[in-house]
């Protein structure tokens, strides 16, 4: 079975779980959070390959882009609290 992956930086929707590791795709970042044990068994190899597949795509995408020094965050705006 082909391992599920993401299309890095191309959408804000895809999310994957590998063990307790969460991967979320965003336009300006790919987030990895949680925890994953790569165990020295068949499942560990499967998880390691899947993670590597995703990271390889991330690297290829970044290498092919014209990158800024740092991503910019859109500032928030302020509104009156409508719940008061």
């Amino acid at each position: 079975m082909a391992k599920e992956s993401i299309n890095p930086f191309q959408n804000e929707s895809e999310t994957l779980q590998i063990g307790d590791l969460t991967i979320e795709n965003r336009f300006d970042q790919v987030s990895f959070f949680g925890s994953l044990d790569i165990t020295r068994d068949k499942m560990g190899l499967g998880n390691a390959r899947q993670l590597k597949g995703i990271l390889d795509l991330v690297v290829v995408k970044l290498e092919g882009d014209d990158l800024p020094d740092q991503v910019t965050i859109e500032p928030t705006d302020t509104v009156k609290n409508p719940f008061n």
Binding site: E74, T76, D77, T78, V79, K80, N81, F83, N84
Partner: peptide
């Protein structure tokens, strides 16, 4: 919970 006089929004739409 949304407390305080003012709130911050992201994307010009979603209150934090």
């Amino acid at each position: 919970i949304f407390q305080g006089e003012n709130l911050q929004r992201i994307g010009g739409a979603v209150m934090i």
